[in-house]
Structures are given as structure tokens and as C-alpha cells.
Design a protein around this nucleic acid. Structure first.
Lengths: 191, 191
DNA sequence: AAAACTTGTCTAGCGTTGCTAGAATCCGGT
DNA sequence: ACCGGATTCTAGCAACGCTAGACAAGTTTT
């Protein structure tokens, strides 16, 4: 492989990342409904069809943004859990970190957990960052607990429910802390 | 008001309902992405613009369908709760009824709890059927429990989380019953 | 060095969407 | 019989995701 084609491949990878970043920034600034292929093409200063030489379609771009989000969320959760002294505090810490993430980056959260996605969850092909996120929840339960996987799923589901219902205005923004306190307290004994 | 204009008003109300019903049927048969204003107009055998003399836009139609759903869900939940012997079984019964509803009418559920809606939740103008749904959850907790409103919100959120994550394939379809059993057991002592 | 081919990018356009302006039509009241 | 107001339709706008085919740039072959 020549030096020229190496450069080209490098440039191509850069552009690939530019598209993802542009999509993410646009979504975080104006919401996903404002992210159109035309506006994306404008931002990366290429014409519309080049997007389709990098991604199969708009959903694939959203999924790529989501994957970035999973890596960041995994990191965020891990830090919170490791800063906790014991398992009891870990659940609460991970919980707080998760809700922080969701409320600070609502568009990113949507790409990960709400919008139609091409990413496969809970399967053999599930990318590492997604596994890592889930494992953070699992780690909040005792290793000897045979059902910790299931418990983690349910706890995560509850957190997700609170997140999306409050984001869409279906439960009041007030009393969010009380809700979370209650949720954690109800799961504390199941660790 | 003449008899003629009375008839016209009656016909108008019928057409109003036809639009809602058509939207609902189309959504339940092919999903909301297949519900377009043109296909709706076709179904009710009028031209597109008449939809806009009944509703402010597509979102308003979705919201009207959702409101029908709330009435049905309230009824469904109430029956389940009243068939239960005590409060302990009530929580589990309402829970089962809720998940039944969600899995049997996924499109209707989406209109109610996922899609952007014009309906106001948890406010003074919240329509009665929506209040009724929420009250069914509240009624699963003891009347003397001062925080039953908050508890109901959290329990409902958890159920919703399980519903949407499993509907979108983000948690496996299997083990759903185990998840629900676990959830109910964790909230049983908080009644 | 010229010709042929491959690769990358762009212009232009298809079919669809939600929504609306303005023409046409219908119908009751005088 | 005609007028006026309400009702409904035709036609069209701007925007969407996506793609075919023209064009240009660069690489390889003769």
C-alpha cells in the first residue's frame, strides 16, 4: 500500500469522525429532528452523497453517535462506582451518575436509548462499550448473587423510565431526587 | 339553530371520530411511521386539508388517539385492581394488566407514553382518563401512606422502562416475567 | 508521454412528508 | 332566481432521506 493511499485512508477516517461529531453537536444544540442529511453535509463541507459512502443511512449515523455515548457513559459510571466506599453507596452513586449523564446530554441519551438503533443489545455482537455500561450496573450487586444480571436489568429499566417520562414532561420535573432516593432504597436490600 | 346545521354538526363529529379511528387502526396495523396525512385522508374518503379543519396537525391526531387509549387503559387497570382480593395482590394485578395492554397494543401505547404529545400530564388541565390511569397506580398503595403519589410515579416509571426497553429490543424478550416478579417484590413492602 | 482506467465527488432529481393558499362548489336564506 | 357564506378540493411549497449518472482527479498501463 502506497503512502498516498495511506494518507487518503487517514483523511477518510477523519471525515468519518467529522460526520459523527457534527451530528452529535447538531443534535445536542437543536435536537435530533434538526439533524438532516443536508445540514450535516453542509457542516462537514461536503455534498450530501458522501454521507452515504460512510454510513448506510441516517440511522447508522445516529447509531455511531450512540456508540460514542456508550463509551462515555461507561467511563462516567465506572468512575462514580469506584469512588464509592462499598456496594451500598455504589448503587446510589452509579444511579446519580446515570441521571446526570441523561440530563446533561439529553440528545445523546436519546440516540442511545430511545431512537431506533442499529446497535444490537445483549447479544454476542454487542460492542464492548455497551457491555461495559451494563456491567457497571451488574457490579452494584453482590458477586455471589446469582440473579444480579436480572436485578441490574430491572434497576436500569426503572432509571430509564424515570428519565424518559420526566424528559417528555409526563412526570413533573420536581421531586426527582425524592423519586430516585425511593427507588434506590427499594433495591438496596436486593443486592 | 336549524335542523340542517344540527345534522351537519353531527356529521362533522362523526368524521372527527372516523379520523381518530383510522389513525389508530393504521398505526396498530403498520406502526406510526406508516400513518401519513395522505393515507388518513384516503381512508376517511376526504381530501387532505379536511384533517386540518379538525386537528391542528398530525401531533393533535396522535394525541386524540392517545386519549382514547387512556380511557381504555384506565378501565383495564381498574378491572384488574378490583378483581384482586387485597392491596398485595392489587399491585401485581395492575402491573400485569398494564404490561398486557402495552404488549397487545404497542402502537397505542407509543402514542400515549412515547411519541411527542400535546396532552398535559400531571396538571390542572389533565384530562380525566389520564388522571384515572394514574390513580389506579396510586390506589395500589395504602391510603394512609403520605407518599403514595410519589411511590406510584416511581413504580409506573419502572414498568414503563421495562416496557419500552423490551419493545425496542434493548433488553431481551425472555425472562420478562421474572423481571416483573422481582420488581413487584421490591415494591411490596413499600405499600 | 499519451491513453485508459479507477476512484472519488458533485449536480440534479425522485418520491415522500406535513401543511396551506386560493379556486371551485355546494347549499340555505332572501 | 340569485346571493353569500361555509365547505371542500386541486395544486403546490419547502423540506425530507436517498440515489443515479455526469464529471473530474489521480493512478496505472501502453
Amino acid at each position: 500500500m502506497s503512502a498516498v493511499s495511506e494518507r487518503r485512508e487517514r483523511e477518510r477516517a477523519q471525515r468519518h469522525q467529522m460526520i459523527i461529531t457534527a451530528a452529535r453537536e447538531l443534535a445536542e444544540a437543536e435536537g435530533w429532528e434538526a439533524v438532516t442529511t443536508r445540514r450535516l453535509a453542509d457542516r462537514v463541507e461536503y455534498s450530501q452523497p458522501v454521507l452515504y459512502s460512510h454510513f448506510n443511512g441516517k440511522d447508522a449515523i445516529v447509531s455511531a453517535v450512540a456508540l460514542e455515548g456508550f463509551a462515555e457513559l461507561a467511563d462516567h459510571l465506572r468512575r462514580a462506582r469506584e469512588a464509592a466506599d462499598d456496594l451500598g453507596q455504589a448503587l446510589r452513586a452509579v444511579c446519580g451518575a446515570y441521571l446526570d449523564f441523561a440530563s446533561e446530554r439529553p440528545a445523546l441519551y436519546q440516540a442511545m436509548f430511545v431512537l431506533p438503533t442499529e446497535l444490537r443489545f445483549a447479544s454476542d455482537e454487542t460492542p464492548a462499550p455497551m457491555r461495559a455500561c451494563f456491567e457497571e450496573f451488574v457490579s452494584c450487586f453482590r458477586p455471589e448473587n446469582k440473579r444480579r444480571g436480572l436485578f441490574a436489568e430491572v434497576f436500569w429499566s426503572a432509571l430509564h423510565g424515570i428519565t424518559v417520562l420526566s424528559e417528555s414532561g409526563r412526570i413533573p420535573a420536581a421531586y426527582q431526587d425524592e423519586r430516585v432516593d425511593f427507588l434506590v432504597s427499594q433495591f438496596a436490600d436486593a443486592r
